[in-house]
Simulated scan of single mutants.
Amino acid sequence: MNIHPLSDVQSLNIGKDTRIWQFVVVMERARIGENCNICSHCLIENKVNIGNNVTIKSGVQIWDGIALEDDVFIGPNVTFTNDKIPRSKRFLAEYPETIIKKGASLGANATILPGVVVGEYAMIGAGSVVTQNIPAKEVWVGNPAKFLREVDD
């Protein structure tokens, strides 16, 4: 485990060979697997599970209720949401479960709405807004994201 001294990592649940760069905040109950790379300026809340071999590029916030399975790629400034009807000073007792399945890739600036499941090895294009579940091994793009083609590699 390699944690940059300018990060604030409160969790002890971080796997071997995971690298956490500067200006990252990881809250106490977050779980992060082995061999992950979490780039600068990221936030990871408490009720978060991150698998092994996950890459999270700069500027990403992983909110309560979000799970990233093994081998997931999260591009820079991907935006996750965890409340369908957000209001100031109103906190949910339970958050919708958002799951990014094994091997999926989310392009830069994609937005993922709460409660969505992105299937295994699916790809979400940069800037896309994902409003529904995405099947395995498909490429989706646009706002709202629409099926483009099957993944060919």
Rank of each mutant, 00 (worst) to 15 (best):
M1F: 04
N2H: 15
I3A: 10
P5K: 06
S7R: 10
V9M: 10
L12W: 00
L12R: 13
D17T: 01
D17I: 02
D17M: 05
I20G: 04
I20T: 02
W21M: 11
V24I: 09
V24K: 04
V24S: 08
V25P: 06
V26M: 09
M27S: 11
E28A: 15
E28K: 15
A30D: 00
R31C: 12
I32K: 02
G33F: 02
E34T: 06
N37V: 08
N37D: 11
I38H: 02
I38C: 06
S40Y: 12
H41E: 02
L43V: 14
I44R: 08
E45H: 11
N46E: 11
V48R: 00
N52E: 02
N52I: 02
V54I: 13
K57A: 10
V60K: 02
I62V: 15
W63G: 01
D64R: 07
I66P: 03
D70S: 13
D71R: 13
D71L: 09
D71E: 14
N77F: 03
N77A: 06
F80V: 00
F80L: 00
T81H: 08
N82Y: 06
D83Q: 03
P86L: 04
R87L: 12
R87W: 06
S88N: 13
S88F: 12
K89L: 12
R90F: 11
F91C: 09
L92I: 11
Y95V: 10
P96D: 05
K101E: 15
K102Y: 04
G103S: 12
A104R: 05
A110D: 01
G115L: 07
V116W: 07
V116M: 06
V117C: 12
Y121K: 11
G125F: 05
A126L: 03
A126P: 02
G127D: 11
S128W: 04
S128F: 03
V129R: 06
N133F: 01
N133H: 07
I134Q: 01
P135V: 10
K146G: 07
K146R: 15
R149T: 10
